[in-house]
Design a protein around this nucleic acid. Structure first.
Lengths: 249, 249
DNA sequence: TGCACTAGCCTGTATATACAACCGCATCAA
DNA sequence: TTGATGCGGTTGTATATACAGGCTAGTGCA
């Protein structure tokens, strides 16, 4: 009824991915070598090689000949998941990033937030509101809700120094993301915080990120339409695509 | 001087990818089987298997046990490359797609178009302007320039039936895309064609697609901000991400 | 102390072989 | 005519083996 036995290389891949996503193996940790898998799992080295090679191809681990196999940093994936950390993005252009935390508290989920995070209405969630600036010009208003059980230390963070996205990635690799991009006319508070003109449109990115198979964060990212654009580049399969948010020059 | 000999499996992969991208092998065509590669390339079957398996993983080919290996339809990739064919997208929602061709001619490239396509200013390019509708409501204004040498039959196409994106994909698989997303206030002609209100923002997608390593098409896609949004979902590595454009309900 | 070398582990590639499952088609039997 | 059978080609998986090349730590020599 349940179906065929999965191939062994697939079973072992899933077991290792499971260990990574449950946090038993963290970025930088050593993964069993081919020979260790041969001994522990009773498979041939070619099969062990396939397990680790495919995990490498899929970005879960990094392999270094002569050294070993290690759980990958999830930075590359974060490009996709976070439209790249906005602080890194700004630094990459040689500009200066600064941020102000306008709000940081445990609030109650409204209907929209509850639906997005899969929790009950009025359940406790961490809520943070941050303005990000590039060389003093406001470029993003981040309105984010975080599942309290996922990141219990949220209220102690200094989000001027570490963006919420980076903080969340550090807790556990964010494995899945869903985002929606809209053009909209911002309401008064948003317009004020972004120093936008009266009838200027904004680019609104609504994002949910997932870890351990459930939504852990829900964010609305507002960007001034005349100073910001999203760029994406899709390269042929086999190479890694990149997505970035950039300020219009 | 030139460097290491590449591994044979890699050489063979590149040779087959080359045949696909030069159009010698078209979607649906049969790719040499593992045993044929064993004979023709003088390699072992395990190596031939790796060649075809990785091409399959990277989406270049489809493999069917007991039948053979065939060049893949590039539909899946087109989701990424074309923000999914808008006609398919609308049909997928059970709605009716219609389109009007407002302009279809060989025009001269201005500076922006010339730069985007890597041609000289005033060089001849095909220019097409189309309004796409979902159940009679205009949802996209497509302002596209196509490299004449790439698609010489452009002027004979009926773009009410086949979208330019689908037409171009049929000529040769589009292998690479670059896009920019902005929020903007449309100018008068765009606003009129999309039946948009006076101060309504639009979501503007600017896209270049590449084939054979060069830009072949440049398009500006305008969408009414209150009726359209872009959705993306990034799944864990190993699964294929999808990107779609959807109308707001 | 400092340096060169080597042993040992690791990944990367490649071969030869084996068995299972799947598919299409031709052949054969009812 | 219809249905069943089997064969050959194809992919999918797995093993055992081999050699090359990279890296590290420790050994031993100067």
């Amino acid at each position: 009824m349940t179906g065929q036995a999965k191939p062994r290389y697939q079973q072992l891949k899933e077991e290792i991915i499971g260990r990574i996503s449950r946090g038993e193996l963290k970025p930088g940790d050593r993964v069993p070598s081919e020979n260790e898998l041969v001994d522990s799992a009773g498979i041939s080295r070619m099969t062990a090689n396939r397990v680790l090679r495919e995990l490498n191809d899929e970005g879960y681990v990094d392999r270094v000949a002569g050294v070993g196999t290690f759980v990958a940093d999830f930075k590359a994936a974060s490009h996709l998941l976070e439209v790249r950390n906005i602080a890194d993005e700004i630094a990459h252009r040689g500009h200066r990033h600064s941020a102000d935390v306008l709000h940081l508290a445990a609030d109650r989920a409204d209907h929209e937030v509850a639906a997005a995070l899969g929790i009950r209405v009025r359940e406790r969630v961490f809520h943070v509101l941050i303005v990000h600036r590039e060389n003093a010009a406001p470029i993003q208003l981040e309105d984010r809700y975080v599942l309290a059980s996922f990141a219990p230390d949220t209220l102690e963070q200094d989000f001027r120094a570490v963006t919420p996205g980076a903080y969340l990635s550090g807790i556990s690799p964010l494995q899945e993301a869903e985002h929606t991009v809209r053009a909209a006319i911002p309401d008064e508070p948003v317009r004020k915080n972004l120093r936008m003109g009266a009838r200027e449109p904004c680019l609104l990115v609504i994002r949910r990120t997932f870890a351990h198979g459930r939504a852990v964060s829900f964010a609305r990212l507002y960007h001034p339409g005349n100073r910001f654009e999203l760029k994406g580049h899709y390269a042929p399969p086999g190479t890694r695509p990149t997505d970035t948010g950039v300020a219009i020059q």
